[in-house]
């Protein structure tokens, strides 16, 4: 019997087979940074619908909204970073095509992931008090502290419910076949929280390496994800494109500009889709290479 942990490598298509209509899917990264775009593109190629998407939103949210796959969206912002407003998301909101919209404060969003990661029904937070986040989400509740506050009166705080996920989709720089993974850029974002908040986690990476290779040139503190959190590992070089995945690559600003420009016009968007999103992931990467060479 092998003493090695199991090999979790799988294809993009095998990930999609595990997803179902109506699932709650958390997407790692932040804005237009280190997003599991190859997995998002695979969802676009599938028939999946009525999804609840939980995301520090970037083009992942934009693309899924444009394709009409989102029934419920949980976010604190949606942005392309260097282009502040995500055009597809903006349009979806203005046309009212996402049936349930849950806009949270960023701290509330993190607190909700923490609660789910800790298997708690909620966690208290100050963030959200007094704002319209509590008005526009009238199902959110407050909770009175059982302890006296500084002036003797107990504080009433937001009871942020756990953001429980059926699935988390993440993209990191490197992993081994078992799901141990490192991020090599400056920010871990909240990918470990997404993994712990989810029943299943699928992790795409730029490169699958031997376990020993994970720390050969990288401090152990960068091992953000361990294999207990992971159900599938997918090697997808360029899998975060066009979002950033430093140090492997920066955001493809030229491509992002083309994406945002195309989003504003129906014919231009159909042409963009036909050129970049009609085929599988290798067709996408080939089309991007061709775009680069122009």
């Amino acid at each position: 019997m092998s003493t090695r942990p199991r090999d979790k490598r799988m294809s993009i298509e095998e990930v999609i087979e595990q997803l179902e209509d109506g699932m709650t899917i958390g997407i790692g990264g932040w804005g237009s940074r280190r997003k599991p775009m190859a997995l998002v593109r695979a969802i676009l190629r599938s028939d999946l619908k009525d999804l609840t998407i939980v995301s520090w939103g970037g083009p992942d949210v934009g693309l899924l909204a444009r394709a009409g796959r989102i029934r419920r969206l949980v976010y604190a912002f949606v942005s392309l970073d260097s282009i502040p407003l995500e055009p597809h998301f903006q349009r979806a909101r203005q046309e009212g095509t996402i049936s349930e919209v849950v806009e949270l404060d960023e701290g509330m969003f993190q607190t909700g992931l923490r609660a789910a990661a800790q298997r708690l029904p909620f966690l208290p937070t100050r963030a959200g008090l007094g704002s319209d986040v509590l008005v526009n989400n009238d199902w959110l509740r407050t909770v009175e502290s059982p302890y006296p506050g500084p002036d003797g009166t107990p504080e009433t705080l937001v009871a942020m419910p756990a953001l429980e996920l059926d699935v988390a989709l993440l993209h990191l720089n490197r992993a081994d076949a078992h799901g141990n993974a490192t991020y090599l850029g400056p920010d871990p974002y909240f990918d470990d929280l997404f993994a712990m908040a989810a029943a299943k986690t699928f992790l795409s990476v730029e490169q699958v390496v031997d376990t020993a290779g994970l720390t050969i040139d990288t401090p152990v503190q960068r091992l953000l994800i361990d294999r207990m959190m992971v159900d599938g590992v997918i090697e997808t070089p360029g899998g975060a494109h066009f979002t950033s995945c430093v140090p492997d690559y920066d955001r493809d600003e030229r491509f992002q500009k083309a994406y945002a420009a195309a989003a504003k016009d129906e014919a231009a968007w159909r042409a963009f889709e036909a050129r970049f999103l009609a085929g599988d992931e290798s067709a996408y990467q080939a089309a991007v290479k061709e775009f680069d060479d122009e």
Binding site: F77, V78, G96, D132
Partner: peptide
């Protein structure tokens, strides 16, 4: 910084609330 117009279907969607609610009470 969230949106202009009614929240249910804004005339102009902006970034979202970001951290503004938490920032101001913290």
């Amino acid at each position: 910084i969230s949106a202009i117009g009614p929240f249910e279907q804004p005339r102009r969607q902006l970034l979202g609330s970001r951290g503004a609610p938490g920032n101001t009470v913290s």
